[in-house]
């Protein structure tokens, strides 16, 4: 057991290297994940933006946080897809019959999700800058934003891991993406919740994406974050812990 611990980080590095190769060799994945939110951003700013009242004079500033979360949500289907293929093709069995920590293969996928999302989010932010996005936020606020988005990504990645590991078919692995895609759409990502009819508003205000979007927006615009940021963090950490435990159990059982 001693040797296994000593090699843990090295093994995880090998796993990460492997999954990153997968991502860079199927660039369509990362392009899809990046292009779709950019297209939405263009649509909302240049087509619908004139008609949307958000109380900010620069709609890109209002919109960007939601677009970033949509990008993360879009990437999640690919996480379960990759995990499913590893399970189905016997790759996990191969690793699990070797003297390496069982969780290394799983963590390799999770780290990969973090890295690939970081790449697409940077591209999206650059495009937003070209479209007139400006932020007075300092380095600390940006770090806080990065931290919240990383937690959000981890939470969704572990949810996707459950789906990928327990799926019986490729389609089944992808199904998890649909409800997750919807969450940012019914939140304050595009318009303030105050403009929504009663039941929709109630849902939007009490689901995880709204407090997360608002915390990121407040940080980027240098506004007070209030208690909302704790609600946002609680959602991310809560989902992450539960999903991580469940995924670990499914993985141990072998799907």
């Amino acid at each position: 057991m001693e040797t296994i611990k000593n090699y843990y980080l090295m093994d995880m590095g090998v796993m990460l290297g492997r999954s990153l190769r997968h991502i860079f060799r199927s660039l369509d994945t990362i392009i899809t994940v990046t292009i779709m939110p950019i297209a939405m951003m263009l649509l909302f700013v240049y087509v619908l933006g004139g008609a949307i009242q958000t109380g900010t004079d620069n709609y890109v500033n209002y919109l960007l946080p939601g677009i970033l979360l949509i990008a993360v949500a879009n990437s999640i289907g690919y996480v379960s897809y990759r995990l499913f293929l590893d399970k189905q093709r016997g790759i996990f069995e191969r690793f699990n019959s070797m003297p390496i920590a069982r969780s290394a293969a799983l963590w390799g996928h999770v780290l990969t999700s973090l890295v690939s999302n970081a790449i697409s989010l940077v591209v999206i932010i650059l495009v937003a800058l070209l479209m007139g996005f400006r932020s007075p936020a300092g380095i600390l606020s940006w770090l806080a934003v990065a931290g919240i988005i990383a937690l959000f990504t981890l939470a969704l990645t572990w949810v996707a891991a459950i789906a990928g590991l327990s799926a019986k078919s490729v389609d089944g692995a992808g199904v998890i993406a649909y409800p997750i895609h919807f969450l940012p759409l019914i939140s304050s990502a595009f318009v303030p919740t105050a403009s929504m009819p009663g039941p929709v508003r109630a849902f939007a205000e009490n689901q995880p994406v709204t407090p997360i979007v608002e915390a990121i927006r407040a940080l980027l615009l240098n506004q007070p974050v209030g208690n909302g940021i704790w609600v946002a963090l609680a959602w991310c950490v809560g989902i992450m812990i539960v999903a991580c435990l469940v995924a670990g159990r499914v993985y141990k059982k072998g799907g």
């Binding site: 090295m10 090998v14 492997r18 690793f95």
Partner: peptide, 30 residues
């Protein structure tokens, strides 16, 4: 696990990696 190796019923190779990369990956893990 230290003392065995397994070739499962269905060829468990990583299709996106090259033959050499597959072997190097396992060699590093071992």
């Amino acid at each position: 696990r230290q003392s065995i190796s397994l070739t499962g019923q269905f060829a468990a190779v990583d299709e996106i990696l090259t033959g050499r990369e597959n072997l190097v990956m396992i060699a590093k893990l071992r």
